[in-house]
Design a protein around this nucleic acid. Structure first.
Lengths: 335, 335
DNA sequence: CACCGTTTCTACAACGTTGTAGGCAACGTT
DNA sequence: AACGTTGCCTACAACGTTGTAGAAACGGTG
């Protein structure tokens, strides 16, 4: 059986509250009393009941991270950094997988975990600002562009500028027929919209025409979608000399499709992605990409949450921007 | 503010317990009373406080999954299946990242999440059976070979046979100098030991000599380790005509190293992995591998945990085996 | 009409913890 | 010697929920 404060108290011959004071590091406890209590704690292997503590204190020391899918490497890597950053505050991270479905996201946002968690870091795909309006519950930090107009603190990266820079890199290498893979018509494609904007900006700045046939949609951003989109571009007869994929998994799929079509990368077609997932550092060829500083994103998100928990919960929402850099590898230049 | 049973009770003009009865689906509540209570619940957007419920009932509806690292695709994919399988039981899954460090694993096993969770699915890397001995706490299901001799329920796959079969596949293709990447000397390498055993079994069965210089250790099983081990083999002058990597990320790293050395896969060297992660279905070349049925593993683990929670907690530990199959792709045969 | 069983509901206690209030020594100061 | 201050500790209540016991109302039976 698990032991309670009461058991420890009886063993140490003190009151329940004194044991509680020892556990919580209260100063006014005589050294010998403290020692006796600590001994009893060790002997019984006592561990506080977090539910009871939460019920009393209103804090659990647990925060949640909600992401669309864990087996998208970007989110898995991000999750690792969030867990690490949260550990610095003594927090445990509960990871929730929403599948990107609006209903599930709404459930998570309105607190599926209910009173179990102190705060939420949330990377929504389908959720709208309206879904969040009127949520008075758990403090929340949003990741990414999906929900704008500040219903909650947010951490973003400058997608438009990053997309413009990586596209400009392709242009500077001499590419002129640059395809884009990953555009999305739906409202849900907030990142897609911004990255497409950066792409068109770069074309315009270089005096290149925007050619709609070079822009391939992708409803999801998995490897299979990237491969399918690339095959579609190739069979439709457009012959790009470079491809900007809106994330790395799309790009890895595109690399595969180009390989199957007998085209060499980067000699025949240059390829860039976005996210800097680990796969891209070992793919053949290695993948040029936009590398958001995931560690920084995680740290900022945890920090915003900490401020919100300790500080003014009604203060206006803050928005922080995380840095990124271009990671230029083999897929845009011969080894 | 969040509302409590008391608020709902006042609004509906009934006792607190009646509201609790409605929330919990107790039968003896008059339809009109039930309706009034439900209306009040909806108006106040009442949600039960799980901590309080847990404190009273001893159940949270939350289980934890502890894995070494989330950005190892195998664990990310497994996590997704566990979340899905647990949802069928109405459970939320808290995901914990141990980093494979023994101390952290011990903390998790002895219940870092303490009384917050009902049960634990645990994939240990460094933990020993002694660490688990004397743990009387939360019901636990172990994944993999690390901890043997049944201190807890366990789900495994037959690593030895699987490794033998994939090695036999290489032999059958005519390969004779088959390297192995991923062996580990330390106690922690339980999977490594079993896969190495399968490898040597297959060699022996085919009458091939075991050549120690063909076996490369890898302390961790990341892409970088696979690439380093492969480079090591190549520069040491041994010329394998095939490589069995003990997991897929090692294999992807090995593919990369072979590519850098100007060797073609599978024409010059055939490569196989283990785990069937998504990357391997899109790599160049696509990767032949042992595909454990991750969905089944997750389902069995959740099922074992459910039985343990509802049934006899002192019953002897059960061990279930999950199926696998060989997934033969380009890396062992020309496209 | 008294009695019994069922339905519907309520009051109370308890889960394990911590904040508040307060008591009792021991100490230094007047 | 009386006083206030400080250090150390205890008793009690409360967090929000549900199990238990039982009360009140109702219908049917002898």
């Amino acid at each position: 059986m698990r032991h309670r404060l009461k058991d420890v108290a009886e063993r140490a011959g003190v009151s329940v509250k004194t044991v509680s004071n020892v556990v919580n590091g209260y100063v006014h406890v005589r050294p010998d009393t403290r020692a006796r209590v600590e001994e009893a704690i060790a002997e019984l292997n006592y561990r506080p009941n977090l539910s009871a503590r939460h019920l009393r204190k209103g804090r659990t020391g647990v925060i949640a991270l909600a992401v669309p899918e864990l087996d998208i490497p970007y989110f898995a890597e991000l999750a690792r950094y969030v867990v690490t950053a949260a550990a610095a505050y003594g927090w445990t991270v509960l990871i929730d997988q929403t599948g990107g479905r609006r209903e599930q996201e709404r459930v998570v946002a309105s607190g599926i975990t209910d009173h179990l968690i102190d705060g939420l870091i949330f990377s929504p795909l389908a959720l709208t600002a309206e879904d969040l309006a009127g949520l008075d519950g758990t403090p929340m930090v949003l990741l990414g562009e999906r929900v704008e107009h500040g219903p909650a603190d947010r951490v973003v990266i400058d997608n438009v500028t990053a997309a413009r820079e990586i596209t400009a890199h392709l242009i500077q290498l001499g590419h002129r027929r640059i395809a884009a893979i990953g555009s999305q018509r739906t409202d849900e494609g907030a990142s897609a919209r911004l990255r497409l904007a950066g792409y068109t900006d770069a074309l315009r700045a270089a005096g290149l025409d925007y050619d709609e046939t070079l822009v391939a949609p992708a409803s999801a951003w998995h490897r299979a979608d990237g491969a399918a989109a690339m095959r579609g571009l190739l069979t439709s007869g457009v012959r790009p000399d470079a491809v900007f994929c809106f994330n790395d998994t799309l790009a890895l799929g595109a690399l595969r499709a180009l390989h199957e079509a007998g085209l060499r990368v980067p000699e025949d077609v240059a390829v860039v992605g976005f996210d800097d997932i680990e796969d891209g550092r070992f793919s053949i060829p290695t993948l040029s990409t936009v590398a958001p500083d995931k560690e920084k994103i995680a740290q900022l998100a945890v920090e915003l949450l900490a401020n919100r928990l300790d500080g003014d919960r009604t203060a206006p929402a803050k928005e922080l921007s995380a840095p990124y850099r271009l990671e230029l590898r083999e897929s845009t230049q011969a080894p």
